[in-house]
Computed example of a mutant assay.
Amino acid sequence: MLTTSNQLLSRLLHTTPEAAEHLERVTLSRGLWPMEGQNLGEGHVYFPEAGLMGLRWPSPALPGVGMVLLGCHAGWWPEIGHLGPVQTHVLQAGHAQRIRWSVLQAQPQRYAHWLLQAAAASQQLVHQMARKVHCVQNHTLVQRLASGLLAVRQHNPHGAEPILMTDLAHWLSCPVAELQAAAQVLQTHRAVQWAEDADAGAPLHSSQPQKLASLACACHEHLAQGQRSSGSASA
């Protein structure tokens, strides 16, 4: 049976191992996704195994709220029209497995158990967005950046690739200059490594989770608790 680092896909393969025959591996390239000319494939469900994606629902009702993180706990349906326009951004390059949605639809009884798990897991996206709203309204940018970097480690624990400052600013919905000032504070406490004289596209390295945790709010802990109970998915 195919082994995978994606928790939601692992549950699918555990309940219905034959689903592995329908899986296809695709590349996640950093930046807006899909890239120009890239074929997503019609009606596929995506399971990131390495790399990190963010989903953003542009909404004037939620100003300053960044993207929901999708990594090794997640599954994603790009054709998610009932939720309105979705912007997808790959924060860390990697790869994902995908399966045609029609395969799952064609045998609802065979996949019923997993579909119920996926439906329960989908609530974690809502919880994550609600937590982001709370975080923006109640915590400083230094706390949010430290907590966000810890969340990145939770969603992509095997990814050593740093995140660019411009991508972090996009995710946290703040000006790059303000994010650079927050990164300087974290660097003063030796929680991150960042070249202060570099341009806005410089990478930010976070290899000190204990130090990050001492400066962060607790929002990443709430998200981790939800992942342990049901994972993250969009349905």
Rank of each mutant, 00 (worst) to 15 (best):
R144C: 05
H82A: 14
W57Y: 15
V176L: 09
A120G: 10
P58T: 06
G159R: 01
A118F: 02
C174V: 14
Q137W: 04
S122F: 06
R110D: 06
A120C: 11
H139G: 06
A112T: 02
Q128W: 07
V65M: 03
H158G: 00
S59I: 04
P162C: 01
Q123K: 09
M67P: 01
G84T: 08
H139A: 10
R131C: 12
T140R: 13
L150I: 00
Q92A: 09
G159W: 00
Q92T: 08
V126Q: 14
E178W: 08
G94L: 04
Q87A: 14
A118L: 10
A112V: 02
A121V: 05
A151D: 03
T88M: 05
L116C: 08
V68K: 06
H170K: 12
P175Y: 11
R56W: 13
L62D: 10
Q109Y: 05
H170S: 11
Q124N: 07
V86Q: 14
Q124S: 13
L116M: 13
S102I: 07
H155D: 02
Q137N: 09
H113T: 12
C174H: 07
S122Y: 07
V142A: 12
A183P: 04
G148L: 05
A182C: 09
G54L: 02
V136T: 13
K132G: 11
A106N: 11
H73N: 06
M53R: 03
G66E: 05
Q137E: 13
A130P: 01
Q143G: 08
Q117R: 06
M165A: 11
Q107D: 15
R153W: 03
W77F: 13
H95N: 12
Q117H: 10
V86F: 00
G64A: 11
E161D: 12
Y111N: 06
A177Q: 15
L91K: 03
Q92M: 12
P78Y: 05
G81V: 08
R131S: 11
L172D: 01
L150F: 01
C72A: 13
A93K: 01
G148R: 08
L83A: 14
E79Y: 04
R144I: 02
W101R: 14
H158I: 06
A120N: 10
L141C: 12
N156H: 07
Q87N: 12
L52Q: 02
G81F: 08
G148T: 08
G71L: 01
Q117F: 03
Q143H: 09
K132N: 14
Q143E: 15
G64V: 07
H73I: 04
R100M: 05
T88Q: 07
D167Y: 07
A151M: 04
A61Y: 08
Q180H: 14
I80W: 15
H134V: 13
Q123W: 14
A169K: 05
Q184C: 12
A177C: 10
G75C: 09
V90M: 00
W171V: 05
H73R: 04
R131F: 06
Q137S: 09
P157W: 00
V136P: 02
G66Y: 04
W57C: 01
A120R: 14
A182P: 07
M67A: 15
T140L: 10
C135Q: 12
T88S: 07
